[in-house]
C-alpha cells in the first residue's frame, strides 16, 4: 500500500475535561479530496487546526507524507516535536480560513508574496510573478494592487486561496471557506476550489456545510459526531444511503434548513 499523505493515528484532543476528538484514526491518500461534515461542535475545525499545528494534540500521532508531524525521532524513539520540526513538516500544508485572515495592511499581491519571499527565500521578482499568476488563476488578475478592505468577501477568500497556494503545499485545508460569504459570492469561491481539484495535484481536506458541493467534489465524505467519525464513505453512499442513524438525522436537518 502507498503511504497516505495524511494520517491521524489514534489522535485525542481535549480541552480541559471536554474530549473533542476521541482516538481519531483517519488516513487520506495523496490527491484525495475529503469532505468533513457533521453537527456544530463535533470537532471538524479541530481536526484541521491540529493538522495545521494550530492546536496541540493530547495523544496519538499525526503523520504527513509518511513523516511524523506532531513528533520527531530522537535516539530511535518518537518525542514531541520542537518548533523547528513543526515548521519543517507543516511546510507541506496550507490552510484557508472561514474569515480569510488576509493581512489588511498589504495589497493582494503582497499578501501572496510575503511567505514565498520570507520562508522559501524566493527572489522578490519571482515571487511577484508567481503571485500574479496565482491571482490570475483565481480570477483576480485585475485586483493585484487592491487592499483587502477594497475587495468583496468572495474576492478576499480567493486571495486567501492564492496566498496559501503560493507556498506550494501538498495538502490544502479549507475550513468552511464559504460560510462567511453572502450567498451570491459562494459560487465564485467554489469554482476556484473545483479548478484546484482538477488542475493541481493537491490533497484536500474541507470542512463544509455545502452538501451539494461535497457530493459533487469529494472522493470521500466523513461524518463527524461526538469526537469520532461516525460514518464515512463515497459521497453517493453517504448522501443517498446513510447507514448511521445520526448521519440520517443530520442530513435531513441540513436539507430542511436549506
Amino acid at each position: 500500500m502507498t503511504t497516505p499523505m495524511v494520517k491521524f493515528d489514534k489522535v485525542t484532543k481535549r480541552y480541559g475535561s471536554l474530549t473533542v476528538l476521541d482516538s481519531l484514526d483517519l488516513e487520506i491518500a495523496a490527491n484525495e479530496k475529503v469532505a468533513i461534515i457533521g453537527p456544530s461542535g463535533s470537532g471538524k475545525t479541530t481536526v484541521l487546526r491540529m493538522l495545521m499545528t494550530l492546536e496541540r494534540i493530547n495523544e496519538g500521532i499525526i503523520y504527513v507524507d509518511g513523516e511524523p508531524l506532531t513528533h520527531m525521532e530522537k535516539n530511535g524513539t518518537l518525542v514531541p516535536a520542537d518548533q523547528r520540526h513543526l515548521r519543517r513538516v507543516r511546510g507541506n500544508i496550507g490552510m484557508v480560513f472561514q474569515h480569510f485572515n488576509l493581512f489588511p495592511h498589504m495589497s493582494a499581491i503582497r499578501n501572496c508574496m510575503e511567505a514565498p519571499v520570507n520562508v522559501l527565500g524566493m527572489p522578490k521578482a519571482e515571487a511577484r510573478e508567481r503571485a500574479a499568476e496565482l491571482l490570475d488563476m483565481v480570477g483576480l488578475g485585475d485586483k493585484v494592487d487592491q487592499y483587502p478592505s477594497q475587495l468583496s468577501g468572495g474576492q478576499q477568500q480567493r486571495v486567501a486561496i492564492a496566498r496559501a497556494l503560493a507556498m506550494r503545499p501538498k495538502v490544502m485545508l479549507f475550513d468552511e471557506v464559504t460560510s462567511a460569504l453572502d450567498p451570491e459570492l459562494v459560487g465564485e469561491v467554489l469554482n476556484v476550489i473545483r479548478k484546484l481539484g482538477s488542475e493541481h495535484n493537491l490533497t484536500m481536506l474541507m470542512v463544509t456545510h455545502q452538501m451539494g458541493f461535497a457530493r459533487e467534489f469529494a472522493d470521500r465524505v466523513c461524518f463527524f459526531y461526538g469526537g469520532k467519525i461516525a460514518e464515512e464513505g463515497a459521497p453517493d453512499e453517504i448522501f443517498s444511503n446513510p447507514e448511521n442513524e445520526r448521519t440520517r438525522q443530520f442530513l435531513s436537518a441540513v436539507l430542511e434548513a436549506n
Binding site: M52, I93, F97, H105, E114, A115, N118, M167
Partner: peptide
C-alpha cells in the same frame, strides 16, 4: 491584533521574527 493574523502567519509558516516584523508590529 486578531487571533486570525497569528494563525494565518503560522499557516504560511512565517518565522516568529517575520511574523512580528511584517504582520503584527505594522498593525
Amino acid at each position: 491584533i486578531p487571533k486570525g493574523q497569528w494563525e494565518a502567519s503560522v499557516a504560511l509558516n512565517l518565522s516568529p521574527y517575520v511574523t512580528f516584523r511584517d504582520i503584527i508590529i505594522p498593525q
